[in-house]
Write a protein that binds this DNA or RNA. Sequence first.
DNA 1: CAAGGATATTTGCAAATGCATTTAAATCTG
DNA 2: CAGATTTAAATGCATTTGCAAATATCCTTG
Lengths: 158, 158
Amino acid sequence: MNDQTPPNPVPRLGEIGLTNYAPYLMNRIMGRYNASLREEMAALGLTTAKMRALAVLSVIEGPLIRELAVFSVVEQSTLSRALDQLAAEALIRRETDPGDSRATRVFITEAGRTAFETLWPHMAESYARMFRGIPDDEQRAFVGTLQKMLANIRKHEI
Amino acid sequence: MNDQTPPNPVPRLGEIGLTNYAPYLMNRIMGRYNASLREEMAALGLTTAKMRALAVLSVIEGPLIRELAVFSVVEQSTLSRALDQLAAEALIRRETDPGDSRATRVFITEAGRTAFETLWPHMAESYARMFRGIPDDEQRAFVGTLQKMLANIRKHEI
DNA sequence: CAAGGATATTTGCAAATGCATTTAAATCTG
DNA sequence: CAGATTTAAATGCATTTGCAAATATCCTTG
């Protein structure tokens, strides 16, 4: 079609600039968000993996462990151990799937819900801080783009 | 002003929905992005911390270690050890700051640049995949929002 | 200019993480 | 339906991580 197009190799990071490179910005923002929660999490005896599992379980009822791993963005082996701890603290409960005895479904307990509800206001606060001064419609557009991105990357995921 | 407003407590995560909650989406997308690079990184003997340090150093010349920690979103102690490794592999070089002998400036070496340039196409590919089908203006708006968010959260940061 | 306190980096140590492997159960195939 | 293959979850093990404390240097202030 257009034989005039100059060879356009992958631009360098330096050319884009760190602060125009979306993954960098996202990593940096999430790094702060996650770090800002760590203190509250520590107070509740939660690690990132445990917190994420609880967060997902507060919304999704009885997923399989491998599903929970995807939703909570935690390695399956890491999650397995996080669930050990959460179960020992009675924040979750594991139940063998009725139809497949290899599989395990995970349920949040009342205590687990309470723990997450203690943490949630801090998450909401960090969230609000992040979006301070950003108009609603821009926020909605932003989330819309994120959803498209998620659809793009989760090829073979759930 | 409006005394009719019902008490509006923090909405629950369940009410927002996981896939409308920006931090969740961002964590999940970045989890995939970072995981997708892990294989290439492993082939180059890089950890996340080492890769991030290299990425920043490919753009920023001779930062202090504590600055590099902020830019690369890595705990300072973790970074310190990552730099040990990178220095041992001759991918970076540490130099005591001329004006302050407590401080250390970090420089990428030619070998370090080469290593990062080996990785970069994979990062660019993941990036492209993420944004596949998303129009340029939407991408620009998205990055614009990210920049506002970064400004919001980095209160006392660099 | 001698404390006393701040700042930059490193290090000790315990915990979290991820890969590879194992165990157990389900599913496929001839 | 026996054996091979796939799938779900747990575990062994080495590495990475993060907090807290240590070390070294710098900056005050009396």
